[in-house]
Structure formats: C-alpha cells, structure tokens
Simulated assay, not measured.
Amino acid sequence: MNATRPADPLGSIDSTELRILHTLSVTGSLTATAATLGLSQPAVSQRIKRVETRLAVPLIERSGRGIRLTTAGNILAEHGRTVVSEIDAALAAIDDLRGERAGTLRLVGFPSASATIVPAIMRRLAEEAPEVALQYREAEPPEATEMLRDGEVDCALIFDYEGAAELPAGSAFLPLWREEVHLVVSAARAEGLAGPGVAGAPAVLGDFAAEHWIAGCEKCRGHLLAAAHDSGFEPEIIQETDNVPAMLAMAAAGGAVALVPGLGLAAARTLPDGAAVVQLDPQRHRTIGLISMATANESPQVRLAKRLLAGLDGATWGLAPATE
C-alpha cells in the first residue's frame, strides 16, 4: 500500500519562508539567499525543509553542483513575490503614518534621464524631503524592469515607443511625458531639404532609405527598424551606440543618420558643429513614465517619487504632458 503524508492545511507557510523562496529564485543559491536576508545558511535550509514537510512536496532539487527550485517551489516563489511586496508595502504605509520620512528612494532610469530628469528630482528631494536619500542606478528599460521585478529598486523611469514596453506582471505604468523623435543628419544633408522645420525642413523618413544608419539601445534599434518598415525600407545599420553625444558627432561627420528622441537632444545640450536636427513628417513619439509594482498599499517611496515627478515641468526639456 502506498501511503502519502497529507499536507498540513493550517499554518503551512509564513512570510519569511515565502521571502526565502522568492530570494532563492532570484539568486539561485542558498548561500546568496542567506546573505541577502541576513540569515545563516542552515537556518535557510531548515525553513525550506519545514515547508516541504508541511506541504508534503519537495521545493528544491539538486542541479549539478547547485540547486534549483522544483515546479512547486517556483509556484510558491512567484506567489511569494506578490505576498512579500504587499507585506512590505503595508509596513511602509504604517511607517509613513508615523511620520517616518527618513530612508532611501531606490530609482533606476535610462541614460538621457540621468542628465535631465534625475538631477531635477534630486533638487526637489533636497527641498522637500532632505532626510530621504536617493539611490540611483542607470539602465535601459528592459534591464530596469527586471530590476524592479526582482525587488532591487522601488520604481523605474522608462520610455515606451508606441506601446511597445513589456511590463512585469503585477506592475503599473504611469505615463508622464510625451517626446518627439527627430532625425539627426549632417548640416550638408539638411541643406538639401526645403520648407520649415526644427532645423531645416520636415523630412519623410523614406527619403533616407539609401542612407547608412546609426542605431542606439535595443529598444531604440527596434523603433528604428519599425519606423523604417512603416516607410517601406530596411535600414542599413553600420554604427551602433547608446551614447547620444557620440551619435550626434557621428551624424555631424556625415555618412550616417540617426533617430534621436527629444530628451536625448536636451541631455546633449548643444549640437556638434556640422549636425542638424530635422523634424519628421509624420511625427514619431515615445512616452516617458514611471513603473512600479502594483500593490494594495502603495509604498511611501513610490508615492514620493510620483509627487516629485509631478512637480517637474517637462517643457524644460521639450517634453509635453503624456495626456496631450
């Protein structure tokens, strides 16, 4: 006869054990999990074994020299992330009620935001909540959303081309501003265009099908390919850099053109000699916004970030409100 130990339906798992499993799913190591949570490795192993005993199902298994979560372990880790986020948000809300404003706002943003939006946030933070420290990291949107999903940051400034952003499950996106994407060419190339524009005349993207192109980050490259496809051609990309000043200098040198968003131009402050910015017809845009994990009780850090951003004037960098 095959006897199976029934799972204990009451008190099966607590928040610490869920936190352990979620952290293990991120780190892939008992040692790293213990270090992250400030526990000893034996304590982590014992907590996992207790849950396995209560649920009558294995949660981890050997994989080569390391370990990995079983299917059941992954289920608990995934749901544990939501539960832990809710608990952390509730505790943070209670702290906020006590008037405890000290702490750290962990923010990640993309490169052109680092030179424009983020310094403005820092100035407002110094005025409105000087006891809060800003811990800032720079990353393009795909990496930034992963950092948010894994709990490394409280919120992330990202950009989104025409609804192309892939957001983590359980997250919320707050649109802030809308920016225009421009074509950057050499001054000599711009002189051949006629009519009004940002610098020269509006340009039909298809007229540049034969040009060599400079591509930016992964998302910007994807936008370039999509824009070119809409215009009936495949761009010949011969240079790649996510460094906007370098991209502008390359375009100024001639031989290649690039699509550059308005915030990138604002971050560069001035155009290099020999470069020209041309408006596209029809115009293309991208949206800048803040992404955070959606919880019943929004954390004080996320509320603070939203309040600071709401107080910024996007027109300073040529940005329009996202609602326009």
Rank of each mutant, 00 (worst) to 15 (best):
A210I: 02
A210F: 04
A210T: 03
A210K: 15
E211K: 07
E211D: 12
H212G: 08
H212S: 14
H212I: 01
W213E: 00
W213H: 05
W213P: 02
I214W: 14
A215P: 04
G216E: 00
G216V: 08
C217F: 11
E218I: 13
K219C: 08
K219Q: 10
C220A: 15
G222V: 08
H223F: 15
L224M: 09
L224A: 03
A226H: 14
A226S: 07
A227L: 10
A227K: 07
A227M: 12
A227R: 14
A227C: 13
H229I: 01
H229S: 09
H229W: 14
D230P: 04
D230F: 00
D230W: 08
S231C: 08
G232T: 02
F233P: 04
E234N: 07
E234S: 13
E234T: 12
E236C: 14
I238M: 15
I238E: 07
Q239F: 13
E240N: 07
E240Q: 12
T241G: 02
D242F: 15
D242E: 12
D242I: 02
N243T: 02
V244T: 09
V244F: 13
P245V: 12
L248W: 12
A249Q: 11
M250E: 09
M250N: 13
A251D: 00
A251Q: 06
A252T: 00
A252W: 11
A252M: 08
A253R: 11
G254S: 10
G255I: 01
G255D: 03
A256G: 01
V257Q: 04
V257F: 14
A258N: 00
A258H: 06
L259T: 00
L259H: 01
V260S: 03
P261L: 09
P261K: 08
P261I: 05
P261Y: 08
L263R: 07
L263N: 05
G264E: 01
L265E: 02
A266C: 10
A267Q: 02
A268Q: 05
R269Q: 11
L271A: 03
L271F: 15
P272T: 01
P272M: 12
P272R: 13
D273H: 09
G274M: 05
G274P: 07
G274I: 03
V277K: 06
V277P: 00
V277T: 07
V278H: 06
V278E: 00
D281K: 10
P282G: 06
P282V: 01
Q283M: 06
Q283R: 15
Q283V: 02
H285S: 09
H285W: 12
H285T: 04
R286C: 04
T287Q: 11
G289V: 06
L290D: 06
L290K: 09
I291M: 14
M293D: 08
A294T: 00
T295Y: 10
A296M: 12
A296W: 06
N297L: 13
N297A: 09
E298K: 09
S299Q: 15
Q301A: 13
V302C: 13
R303I: 11
L304A: 07
L304C: 10
K306S: 14
R307E: 05
L308W: 01
L309R: 06
L309V: 13
L309F: 00
L309H: 04
A310G: 09
A310E: 11
